[in-house]
Amino acid sequence: MTGLVATSLTCIKRDRVLFENLNLQLQTGELMYLRGPNGAGKTSLLRLLTGLSMPEAGEVTFNHAPVQHSESQFYRQSIYLGHKSGLSSALSALDNLTYWCAQHQVTVTESQIVNVLDVVGVTGLEDIPVAMLSAGQQRRVALARLWLKPARFWVLDEPFTALDTAGVALLETTFKKHVDEGGAIITTSHQPLSARAGTHRYFDLEYRF
């Protein structure tokens, strides 16, 4: 099976079993919407999928190789956006994204980054420290990465947090465009996705005691 595949994953946090024997498969051209109440383990699952944390049992593979291994090339083809924005508050939006692109080996020019910031609606704020921006603006700067890195697999943990309605609409149409172009997205959110996001598949996690 190609794509991002999780087989019989088990996650235990503080002696509580969040999920056991979980199987999940994410293929290109698919938008998967992960649902579940608070504490069900959505974030834990997404972190396991990216290889940031290690499962108690089971494994996550990408194109038949474990995600952490360099031969899987997962990190070259994926973007993960978590609860934490990944932006250094002392640096400007432009600097943050410039360094991020260099780290992820994406070649972009300064004007391209400025253009993307324009698209996500943070015009004219690229030179001031990120700490001075509002929560929604910081989220928009963090989301700008989706436009910068040509990655197929998007792993997004509550990307709609702090966004206004225009921001939500922009992100949803971007989801649809990305999936139509053969990308794959797995996302969590507490608001249901609207029709703008296109067809999507649900994956439900239950809260276990």
Partner: peptide, 17 residues
């Protein structure tokens, strides 16, 4: 500490470097 708290460390670890 700061890179850990603001999530930059996660992004660095997912860069493939």
């Amino acid at each position: 500490r700061e890179d850990f708290q603001d999530g930059s460390l996660e992004q660095l670890m997912l860069s493939g470097l």
